[in-house]
């Protein structure tokens, strides 16, 4: 690959000491290595509990690796920073702020003036379909609208890397599909690097350039595959493509194997 790596994980290990149960002790991640190139859209695919959110937390800087290195442009990551935006599973909006004030939170923290950020803010609000709800408060919105506001909020500071932790997992199927199209369209105009965690195979195939499949706990990168489909993608064309069925079958095979392992590994 010609592009320089933005994010790189080298033999990263992470352990958690379960406070209550010995079953939770032990390795969450074992020797996880991968590279994220500039402008790439990578999905991290795995069952719940395989440590994919842990990887995201390490890259975000919320947590530190026990061994190995997590690097941003060659420098170790120690703390969260605005160049790494994040969209969480829950919208995590601030209920005391209006939708507009939520969306502009990032630029306001970095000391930008309203003149600097408002045009972009209005554009993102339109893009996520919330232009008429800018004065509303988060608790007056539906779940899907909240998550759209959270997406606009993460995107407005123009992060170089966007980390997404199953952001559409809590949405209904129709809203999820619209959000996925929205995400890829914005991504193509802005060319951010995206690391997207999901357990949904279709979602990964629809969104990603590259899919990293994780093993059951302790989490490792079990398989890596390029997604060959041209962009812009439409789900209709995708499901009709014979390569799609083949890819999905391969992934399902791996996922099922790992699921079986984690079931065997489960304490009685």
């Amino acid at each position: 690959m010609s592009l320089p790596p933005r994010i790189s994980l080298q033999r990263v290990c992470k352990q958690f000491a379960g406070p209550t149960s010995a079953a939770l002790d032990g390795d969450v991640l074992r020797d996880v290595s991968f590279v994220l190139s500039a402008g790439e859209f990578v999905c991290l695919l795995g069952a719940s509990g395989c440590g994919k959110s842990t990887i995201l937390n390490l890259v975000a800087g919320f947590d530190q690796a026990d061994r190995g290195e997590v690097l941003l442009d060659g420098r170790p990551i120690h703390a969260p920073g605005p160049e790494r935006g994040m969209v969480f599973q829950q919208p995590t909006l601030f209920p005391w702020l209006s939708v507009r004030d939520n969306v502009t939170f990032g630029p306001r923290m970095s000391g930008q003036t309203a003149q600097q950020y408002l045009p972009d803010a209005e554009r993102y609000l339109r893009l996520v379909g919330l232009q008429d709800f800018a004065e509303h408060f988060p608790w007056q919105l539906s779940g899907g609208m909240r998550q759209r506001a959270a997406l606009a909020r993460a995107w407005l500071p123009n992060p170089e890397i966007l980390l997404m932790d199953e952001p559409f997992g809590a949405l209904d199927a129709q809203t999820r599909l619209a959000m996925q199209e929205l995400l890829t369209t914005i991504w193509q105009t802005i060319q951010t690097t995206i690391l997207f965690v999901t357990h949904d195979i279709d979602e990964a195939l629809f969104l990603a350039d590259r899919v990293l499949i994780m093993s059951a706990r302790p989490g490792r990168i079990r398989e890596e595959l390029q997604v060959p489909f041209e962009r812009p993608r439409s789900l209709e064309d995708l499901v009709a493509d014979p390569r799609y069925g083949q890819l999905k079958r391969n992934i399902l095979h791996v996922v099922r194997e790992e699921a079986a392992k984690s079931l065997v590994g489960e304490p009685a």
């Binding site: 007056q140 193509q188 812009p232």
Partner: peptide
């Protein structure tokens, strides 16, 4: 690629309608 306006239309409209407005 779809335009921004088109994309906004893609979003489920009925959802916006059921969004709880001001009390």
């Amino acid at each position: 690629m779809r335009s921004e306006a088109e994309l906004a239309l893609l979003l489920p409209q009925q959802e916006a309608a059921t969004g709880k407005g001001p009390r």
